[in-house]
Amino acid sequence: HMTFVALYDYVASGETDLSFKKGERLQIVNNTEGDWALAHSLTTGRTGYIPSNYVAPSD
């Protein structure tokens, strides 16, 4: 899985969403939902949907 870094803070709007903080590292599990991606946080160990425009690929 590619690793991504959060560009902004995001507060989950539902139970299936994943909250994260700017700078948090995430792995995209499934990116077939258009503007949303299923992601796993390497920081918190949690998995949920995130807005895909809130993250960018990290080196």
Rank of each mutant, 00 (worst) to 15 (best):
H1L: 12
H1M: 12
H1V: 12
H1K: 13
H1A: 12
H1P: 12
M2P: 13
M2F: 11
M2H: 13
M2W: 10
M2Q: 13
M2E: 11
T3F: 13
T3K: 05
T3I: 15
T3V: 15
T3Y: 14
F4A: 06
F4C: 11
F4W: 13
F4G: 05
F4Y: 14
F4P: 01
F4K: 04
V5I: 14
V5C: 09
V5S: 03
V5D: 05
V5K: 04
A6S: 05
A6L: 05
A6I: 03
A6D: 01
A6R: 00
A6F: 02
L7Q: 07
Y8H: 08
Y8S: 07
Y8R: 08
Y8E: 09
Y8D: 07
Y8I: 07
D9S: 05
D9H: 02
D9V: 02
D9E: 06
D9R: 00
Y10N: 02
Y10P: 00
Y10S: 01
Y10D: 00
V11P: 04
V11C: 11
V11I: 12
V11S: 09
A12W: 03
A12R: 04
A12E: 04
A12D: 03
A12K: 04
A12Q: 05
S13T: 14
S13D: 08
S13M: 13
S13K: 13
S13R: 13
G14D: 08
G14C: 15
G14W: 07
G14Y: 09
E15N: 10
E15D: 13
E15I: 10
E15Y: 08
E15M: 09
E15L: 11
E15R: 08
T16E: 11
T16F: 15
T16G: 13
T16R: 13
T16N: 15
T16K: 14
T16S: 13
T16P: 05
D17M: 13
D17K: 10
L18H: 03
L18Y: 04
L18M: 14
L18I: 11
L18V: 07
L18T: 05
L18Q: 03
L18A: 06
S19R: 05
S19K: 04
F20R: 15
F20I: 11
F20Y: 03
F20P: 00
F20K: 00
K21I: 08
K21H: 09
K21L: 09
K22M: 07
K22G: 03
G23V: 00
G23R: 01
G23K: 01
G23L: 03
G23C: 06
G23S: 02
E24R: 00
E24A: 01
E24C: 01
E24D: 11
E24I: 01
E24F: 01
E24G: 02
R25A: 08
R25M: 14
R25T: 12
R25K: 13
R25S: 07
L26T: 00
L26G: 00
Q27W: 14
Q27K: 12
I28P: 01
I28R: 02
I28F: 07
I28L: 10
I28G: 01
I28W: 04
V29I: 15
V29W: 13
N30V: 11
N30A: 14
N30H: 13
N31H: 14
N31R: 13
N31Q: 13
N31G: 14
T32E: 10
T32V: 14
T32M: 13
T32K: 09
T32W: 15
E33C: 15
E33R: 10
E33H: 12
E33T: 13
E33K: 12
E33L: 13
G34D: 07
G34S: 08
D35N: 10
D35Q: 11
D35Y: 12
D35C: 12
D35I: 10
D35E: 12
D35L: 09
W36C: 07
W36Y: 08
W36I: 05
A37K: 13
A37R: 09
A37L: 15
L38Y: 12
L38Q: 03
L38H: 04
L38G: 00
L38C: 14
A39S: 02
A39L: 02
A39T: 02
A39C: 02
A39H: 01
A39W: 03
H40F: 11
H40T: 15
H40R: 14
H40K: 14
S41R: 01
S41A: 02
S41T: 01
S41M: 02
S41H: 07
L42I: 09
L42S: 04
L42K: 05
L42Y: 06
L42C: 12
L42F: 06
L42E: 06
T43W: 06
T43V: 12
T44C: 03
T44R: 02
T44K: 02
T44E: 03
G45T: 03
G45P: 01
G45V: 01
G45I: 01
G45H: 09
R46N: 09
R46F: 08
R46A: 08
R46W: 06
R46Q: 10
R46S: 07
R46K: 13
T47I: 10
T47Q: 07
T47Y: 09
G48F: 04
G48E: 01
G48L: 02
G48I: 01
G48W: 01
Y49H: 06
Y49K: 07
Y49R: 09
I50F: 02
I50D: 00
I50N: 00
I50A: 02
I50Q: 00
P51W: 03
P51E: 02
P51I: 02
P51D: 04
P51L: 04
S52C: 15
S52I: 15
N53T: 09
N53L: 08
N53K: 12
N53S: 14
N53D: 10
Y54Q: 06
Y54C: 11
Y54D: 02
Y54W: 08
V55Y: 09
V55R: 03
V55P: 04
V55Q: 04
V55L: 11
V55I: 13
V55A: 07
A56K: 10
A56I: 14
A56H: 08
A56F: 09
A56P: 11
P57H: 09
P57G: 08
P57R: 09
S58G: 09
S58H: 12
S58N: 10
S58A: 14
S58Y: 14
S58M: 15
S58T: 12
S58W: 14
S58V: 15
D59A: 12
D59V: 12
D59Y: 12
D59M: 13
D59I: 12
D59G: 12
D59L: 12
D59C: 14
D59S: 11
